[in-house]
Design a protein around this nucleic acid. Structure first.
Lengths: 239, 239
DNA sequence: CGATGTGTTGACCGGGTTCAAACAATGTGG
DNA sequence: CCACATTGTTTGAACCCGGTCAACACATCG
């Protein structure tokens, strides 16, 4: 029974650190340093290894047969990438580094081997996949139910949450993405993202600290962002 | 190595049948019959078992804290439900039967036990999760990049594909969903769905066979639907 | 310095929502 | 059997959010 052989700590940062330590100890990982734009894997390539983000961040790009492209997720320290390749032994999307950083390359076969003697490892894998599925569903929900401003606000809120989960400061986040990239994540155009950010700034939900560059976003109070999302969603719900 | 202990058959129907047989043989499953509207599990309930659809179909409903609801997927024979509960030992969404049918209830712990001696089982689990992740990403892509008509067309195409994957006729599908439910799946209002269906029927991409009820949809040529999606997506891509 | 990439803002347009009305199918009770 | 309510669908008309197109501001970098 014992479904919590590996304890879920209330502190997500501790959980992530512990997970990484466990992996490092039990599985033969190889490191890989990447820079912004580097491609970890492409759709169609044979699947063999799962990547775990150690530092930096990566985006997942899904491409349709007809050329439509969509960023389906951004991943931070402790996130696992490459699950998509499990089903057919080929990756079905593209993983791209968004900044310099380093990843751990975990051969899937080696992971399974190690997991045979250490059930905690298997649990780690399953939980990572489960969390991913949860994020996917939340993204779908946000996309379908939120207006543009709320969607951008929710994006920032989620980003801040991800940072906070990793023990980093959450009041000052620097998106290493252009407005167009943010838009692609949210199903919006770059102009709409720009306007939404301006409106959020006007309402003092966010601030632009770095003079004219407008890339560093300060979040005075994360809770206010969440409230804003709730409120604007509630307004939509009240027919 | 050997990442394909369990062979992926080119015929999806065979694959599903073989998977079910394997599960049945190696894991102590219990059956459960359900009717339309029955809830398999709710968000917040302690996680213990994974469900596999044998007959009938289920929908997954994601609910936000503020009450927004979103159907994030519809699942058919051979699909696994309940992965969302793995991460925190609690389900995070709701699974609801959409028609009478029966499910296999697989205790997660028992599955792991059995998998210890039968690696194929683990592979089955992982592939099911991976396929789910792939569907999630495809849904996101469709939602972000397709207009209303194409979205509805793609929904029908995917439904037909799911049936065909299971060896069922694909030219005559009866959606056991109202327009409102379809709309909720696609992030559209019921009126828009109704109009889209009318337009598709006008273009003879679909037909309403059952007099005035308009619930049974005939798809004269599935390929035409796919073409329509491609075409209308391509038009949007060409700036 | 111009050149380029990125961000902002305005004006306009269109697809999808909203609101409303009418109709069809089904069920219920008298 | 019919009158009536209920639920689901269709269609029309007005509105509005977000997309599109365009102009401009402001960085960085050769």
């Amino acid at each position: 029974m014992a479904p919590d052989t590996f304890r879920t700590d209330s502190n997500a940062a501790d959980r992530i650190a512990a997970e990484l330590k466990l992996i490092e100890r039990l599985v033969p990982v190889t490191r890989r340093t990447v820079h912004a734009g580097d491609v970890l894997y492409r759709a169609g390539q044979p699947f063999a290894t799962i990547y775990i983000v150690n530092t930096g961040l990566c985006k997942i790009v899904q491409t349709a047969a007809d050329g439509r492209e969509q960023v389906t997720g951004v991943h931070f320290r402790g996130d696992w990438l490459g699950f998509d390749g499990l089903a057919d032994a080929r990756y079905t999307c593209e993983a791209v580094a968004m900044d310099t950083g380093d990843l751990w390359c975990v051969p899937y076969a080696a992971l399974l081997d190690a997991a045979a003697g250490h059930p905690e490892l298997l649990q780690l894998l399953h939980r990572a996949m489960s969390r991913q599925h949860g994020r996917d569903r939340e993204a779908l929900l946000a996309l379908c139910t939120l207006g543009a401003d709320a969607r951008v606000a929710d994006f920032l809120r989620a980003w801040a949450q991800a940072l906070s989960d990793r023990g980093l400061r959450t009041d000052q986040i620097t998106l290493r993405m252009t407005r167009a990239e943010i838009g692609n994540c949210l199903g919006l155009t770059l102009e709409t993202v720009s306007r939404a950010l301006s409106r959020l700034a006007r309402g003092d939900l966010i601030r632009f600290d770095d003079g004219g560059a407008r890339r560093d976003i300060r979040i005075p109070h994360v809770g206010a962002l969440a409230e804003f999302v709730q409120k604007s969603a509630g307004a939509a719900l009240a027919h």
